[in-house]
């Protein structure tokens, strides 16, 4: 076996050239590509890391905003609660005032209605009393009744103070004897005599008739009226009843 040294040298040179060629066309471009991909991956990772940090910051900001919203909501709720409470108090006070006013109105209306009812009942009672009195009067002897009222009139005059009694009909003042039914002449004389005896001097007496008295005999002077009739009694009774009710 012989070795061709020329071939050996040429093959060595060929391999050296191939090393250079492949280094230029294979190894370096591939290494550059791998390096570029590695850098791109690193850049992507850094970018992803930055985005993750940014997202974390965004999340933190969102959490802070949510917390702020919660605080604002709580404050708003508290404020609304206070406003509602104030409004409720205001409404309640107004309602209480209105209720009080309504109650006062109702009381007034009730009082007026009660007064009207009482007046109606009083009127009805007075009318009833007048009717009863008229029915009683129909069963009584009018002359005896007038005699009785004349007697009671003289008693009323006797109970007056002496000075007041003496002033009745003094100085020629006219007195009027008012009866429910007309008096006959005998009764008029007797009345004049009894009144003169009561007041201490003969009176200047006139006679009048007023059926509204129901029954009775009243004496009217310029300054004094001596009420002596059932109407006056009924008026007195009604006034006393009203006085007792108001008391």
């Amino acid at each position: 076996m012989t070795i061709d040294w020329w071939t050996l040298a040429i093959q060595a040179i060929n391999v050296l050239i191939l090393i250079w060629l492949l280094a230029r066309f294979l190894w370096r471009p591939l290494e550059a590509s791998i390096e570029a991909r590695r850098k791109a991956a690193e850049a992507t990772l850094k970018e992803a890391e930055a985005m993750r940090a940014e997202a974390a910051a965004g999340l933190a900001e969102i959490d802070a905003t949510r917390a702020r919203f919660a605080e604002e909501r709580a404050a708003g709720l508290a404020e609304a609660k206070m406003a509602a409470e104030a409004l409720r108090t205001d409404i309640l006070s107004k309602a209480a005032e209105e209720a009080e006013a309504q109650k006062a109105l109702a009381r007034t209306a009730l009082a007026r209605e009660a007064e009207e009812t009482r007046a109606a009942w009083a009127k009805a009672a007075a009318q009833l009393a007048v009717d009863i009195a008229r029915k009683l009067l129909a069963h009584l002897d009018e002359r005896a009744l007038r005699e009785a009222f004349l007697g009671s009139l003289t008693r009323e005059l006797a109970q007056l103070p002496e000075a007041a009694r003496r002033s009745l009909g003094a100085n020629g003042a006219a007195l009027t004897a008012v009866s429910a039914t007309p008096l006959d002449s005998t009764e008029k004389e007797r009345c004049r005599a009894l009144l003169g005896e009561a007041i201490g001097h003969p009176p200047h007496l006139a006679f009048a008739t007023d059926p509204g008295l129901i029954a009775g005999l009243e004496l009217k002077g310029p300054h004094v009226i001596v009420a002596n009739s059932w109407r006056a009694d009924l008026e007195t009774i009604r006034a006393e009843i009203g006085h007792d009710r108001s008391r």
Binding site: T7, N14, L18, L21, P29, S33
Partner: peptide
């Protein structure tokens, strides 16, 4: 200088390998 068959074949190999590598690596992408 004698050019033997193995040298010629080596040249062919060099050309083919270099050309293929150039063709493949001239358009590299990520």
């Amino acid at each position: 200088v004698p050019i033997t068959e193995q040298v010629a074949l080596t040249w062919v190999l060099m050309v083919v390998l270099s050309a293929c590598c150039w063709a493949v690596t001239r358009r590299m992408s990520l």
